[in-house]
Design a protein around this nucleic acid. Sequence first.
DNA 1: GCTGTTAGGAGTACGCCGTACGCCTACGAG
DNA 2: CTCGTAGGCGTACGGCGTACTCCTAACAGC
Lengths: 204, 204
Amino acid sequence: MPRPRSLTPDRLAASALAVIDRDGLGALSMRTVAKELGMSPMGLYRYVADREELEGLVVDRVLGAVDTSPPAPDAPWRERIEVMTRRLREAIARHPEAITLTLTHRHRSPGGLRWSETVLGLLAEAGIDGARRVVALRALHGYITGAIQLEHLGPLSGAGTSVIAALPEDRFPHLTETARTAAEVDPDQEFFGGLRLLLRGIED
Amino acid sequence: MPRPRSLTPDRLAASALAVIDRDGLGALSMRTVAKELGMSPMGLYRYVADREELEGLVVDRVLGAVDTSPPAPDAPWRERIEVMTRRLREAIARHPEAITLTLTHRHRSPGGLRWSETVLGLLAEAGIDGARRVVALRALHGYITGAIQLEHLGPLSGAGTSVIAALPEDRFPHLTETARTAAEVDPDQEFFGGLRLLLRGIED
DNA sequence: GCTGTTAGGAGTACGCCGTACGCCTACGAG
DNA sequence: CTCGTAGGCGTACGGCGTACTCCTAACAGC
């Protein structure tokens, strides 16, 4: 009986994400999103309680795009978890400017929960149960979150590498040498190399 | 020959950290720190270029407190890395309100670099070199960063647990069950359990 | 067709924030 | 003694999140 709503949460999230993708996370504000939608700044508050909720919607949108159906059951479970991880990583990387947001709000997003559910299923199939499974899932979560973060603001990639290259070699012999080696390891190898270490540790 | 500086970067960092510890990260601002020091807001800009640099000083202070001397060489290398990790985790946990800051600025802090240097030395002693060592260090970094983050804003602890408990059990059977189990695993066990999985994977 | 309910839309205002800029003061080396 | 520099303070701008108010437009039920 009232006037119909003119916006969906999804359209709201899409607009916010558009702002982020175009102008960076720093440009995200209630005002810029409102402008993006062609409405007045205060109008947003009819759809979200506050900025934080808006951020939650954005993360939902990023993580909602992850395919969480279990991968082909003929592959070994470690490879299947790797597939799940690759899907998640790619979805996150698709919106690099939003990464900080995505990682900090991940735990509240339905998409993230569906991902966990699927991975837990794979672990169960591998015969991992109880406390062992709790630890395994958390370790995977931790590694994935942390490693993606490092990729994008880490010491061994991008701008950080040059900081390390400038280090006094006599006081940081290992670090300077490692940085040189690191320059030749590509990020994908590094990420999945680390993941495989963890999976091997989980296996037995 | 000029008027002497009346503040050290260290005192600045200490004041900023005091604000954070007392009133939370949200309370950190150039103005609140200036007030803490009994000076005018703009005064800070003679010691730091901008807010980001101030944050860097804070992180330096948190991570500078980590003991980075190599632990007793009679223990196996995995245990020695565990000791290094414990030291880092405890230093970070000593300022829980600053965790977000600490983890995002970690890569630029001298303390963090010294930590890496020591750990690389331990890995070298274990016979891990070249690209393998790059991957191992990054995996450790990633895991530690991510896991600490999860501990403090994660889905399986604190407020997040109740979100999961409220999930429809039929659509998330594994997740709801795991959450119940997780409630009985203490955070230390979980953190170091995960670390050991990774170390085992690194070992061979 | 009128009315009541509710969403839409706009505007104003408050108290924060980071920080650019300018002015005066106090110190200490030459 | 003087001059260069750091210290210290105040003012000001543009942006933020968001509380609140006022009016309008669409539809359900009478």
